[in-house]
Amino acid sequence: MQVTVVTGNPKVASRTLDAAIMLASRLAGRAPDHVVDVATLGPALLDWGDPDIAAAVDTVSSSDLVVVASPTFKATYTGLLKLFLDQFPTGTGLAGVVAVPLMLGAGPAHALAPELLLRPVLVELGATVVAPGTYLQESRYDDPSAFDAYVARWASPVRALAAAAVPA
């Protein structure tokens, strides 16, 4: 099972990235194989023929399990993450991929953002989103126990589905 983390925080090596790696590791039972820290891709995100972007897209689309994470900006995921996700073909770009949406925020006001905003775009790209999106208050980004209930409920079905996923 190939596991990848994608994070759309404009800051390289962010708390969002740390939390996403922690969640992916807990869900998969091991560290992720790949990390796509979208902030490191820079202006190439605006160049539709860039080979580095194409390689990142290929890495994500060939994964079995992908944790897609963003901080909450203006009550939704970041524009940076949207630029990256726009590189995937609609309906097929994430076919065969089990995706888990994760968002971080300062308080509980936007706790439904992963489910209402990030999940639909992942499904639109063809991902299978078996578990509900999860929201984490950024004050707990490095607290492994912050994911205990989520992992206890969802790790088994996420692993099983990702292991059985058939690439598109």
Score class of each variant (00 low, 15 high):
9 N>E: 12
9 N>L: 04
10 P>E: 13
10 P>H: 11
10 P>Q: 10
10 P>M: 10
10 P>V: 10
10 P>T: 12
11 K>I: 03
11 K>C: 01
11 K>M: 04
11 K>P: 00
11 K>T: 07
11 K>F: 02
12 V>F: 15
12 V>K: 13
12 V>H: 14
12 V>A: 15
13 A>E: 15
14 S>D: 04
14 S>I: 00
14 S>V: 02
14 S>E: 07
14 S>A: 05
15 R>Q: 12
15 R>D: 07
16 T>I: 05
16 T>M: 10
16 T>D: 12
16 T>W: 02
17 L>R: 15
17 L>P: 08
19 A>T: 09
20 A>M: 07
20 A>I: 08
20 A>H: 09
20 A>V: 13
20 A>E: 11
20 A>D: 11
21 I>N: 12
22 M>T: 06
22 M>I: 03
22 M>C: 06
22 M>R: 10
23 L>F: 11
23 L>H: 10
23 L>N: 08
23 L>D: 12
23 L>K: 05
24 A>R: 02
24 A>W: 12
24 A>L: 06
25 S>N: 05
25 S>Q: 09
25 S>T: 11
25 S>C: 07
26 R>L: 15
26 R>K: 14
26 R>V: 02
27 L>P: 08
27 L>M: 06
27 L>N: 06
27 L>S: 07
29 G>S: 13
30 R>Y: 13
30 R>W: 15
31 A>Y: 00
31 A>T: 06
31 A>G: 09
31 A>V: 04
32 P>T: 02
32 P>L: 06
33 D>C: 07
33 D>L: 07
33 D>Y: 08
34 H>E: 10
34 H>K: 02
34 H>Y: 08
35 V>M: 10
35 V>C: 05
36 V>N: 01
36 V>M: 01
36 V>E: 02
37 D>Q: 01
37 D>M: 06
38 V>N: 09
39 A>F: 11
40 T>W: 11
40 T>Q: 11
41 L>N: 01
41 L>S: 10
41 L>P: 06
42 G>V: 01
42 G>E: 04
42 G>Y: 00
42 G>P: 04
42 G>F: 01
42 G>M: 05
43 P>R: 02
43 P>E: 12
43 P>C: 00
44 A>L: 09
44 A>H: 03
45 L>S: 12
46 L>H: 05
47 D>G: 12
47 D>M: 15
47 D>P: 11
48 W>T: 13
48 W>Q: 13
48 W>V: 05
48 W>H: 13
48 W>Y: 15
49 G>F: 00
49 G>R: 00
49 G>C: 00
49 G>M: 01
50 D>A: 10
50 D>Q: 03
51 P>S: 03
51 P>A: 09
51 P>H: 01
51 P>Q: 01
52 D>F: 02
52 D>M: 05
52 D>G: 05
52 D>W: 02
53 I>P: 01
53 I>E: 03
53 I>C: 02
54 A>W: 00
54 A>Y: 03
54 A>S: 13
54 A>K: 15
54 A>M: 05
55 A>V: 02
56 A>C: 08
56 A>I: 04
56 A>D: 08
57 V>F: 11
57 V>E: 14
57 V>L: 08
57 V>Q: 09
57 V>H: 11
58 D>G: 14
58 D>I: 04
58 D>K: 14
59 T>P: 03
59 T>H: 06
60 V>L: 04
60 V>F: 07
60 V>I: 12
